[in-house]
Computed example of a mutant assay.
Amino acid sequence: MPDDQQLWGYAEVAAHLGISVGAARNRRNRGTLPAPDDTSVPDRPRWKPATIRGWKPLGQGHRSDLRSNQPEPTFG
């Protein structure tokens, strides 16, 4: 099936993100996954691979706001 017609369920989304299926479900329930591309089957949302591949999960990446302006401590 061509990639633009293929749809991923929780198992495929979880595998792509490197998380458990339960974690993928929790992310959807919290609203931290993109909106599903197909909701025609109740309780079985499905996403196009491109939707998940193009999405940047919250909490991923460098947090520059966590670094303080204080100099690094020296030991010795």
Rank of each mutant, 00 (worst) to 15 (best):
M1H: 09
M1W: 06
D3A: 07
D3C: 03
D3Q: 13
D3Y: 06
Q5L: 14
Q5H: 10
Q6A: 11
Q6V: 08
L7I: 02
L7Q: 10
G9S: 11
Y10D: 11
E12C: 02
E12M: 01
E12F: 03
V13W: 08
V13G: 04
V13I: 06
A14H: 04
A15H: 04
H16M: 06
G18I: 02
I19S: 03
S20Y: 02
V21P: 00
G22L: 00
G22H: 02
A23N: 07
A24I: 08
N26V: 10
R28E: 13
R30N: 11
G31P: 00
G31R: 02
L33W: 09
L33I: 01
A35C: 07
A35N: 14
A35K: 15
A35E: 15
P36Q: 05
P36I: 12
D37R: 03
D38E: 07
T39G: 11
T39Y: 05
S40A: 13
V41M: 03
V41F: 00
V41E: 09
V41Q: 11
D43M: 12
D43V: 06
D43Y: 15
P45E: 03
R46E: 03
R46W: 05
W47V: 00
P49A: 05
A50L: 09
I52M: 01
I52E: 05
R53H: 12
R53E: 14
W55Y: 03
W55E: 15
K56E: 07
P57T: 05
P57G: 02
L58C: 06
L58R: 15
G59P: 04
G61E: 07
H62V: 10
R63K: 11
R63D: 14
R63H: 11
R63N: 14
S64Q: 14
D65W: 14
D65T: 15
D65S: 13
R67T: 06
R67A: 05
S68T: 15
S68C: 10
N69E: 13
P71D: 06
F75R: 12
F75G: 07
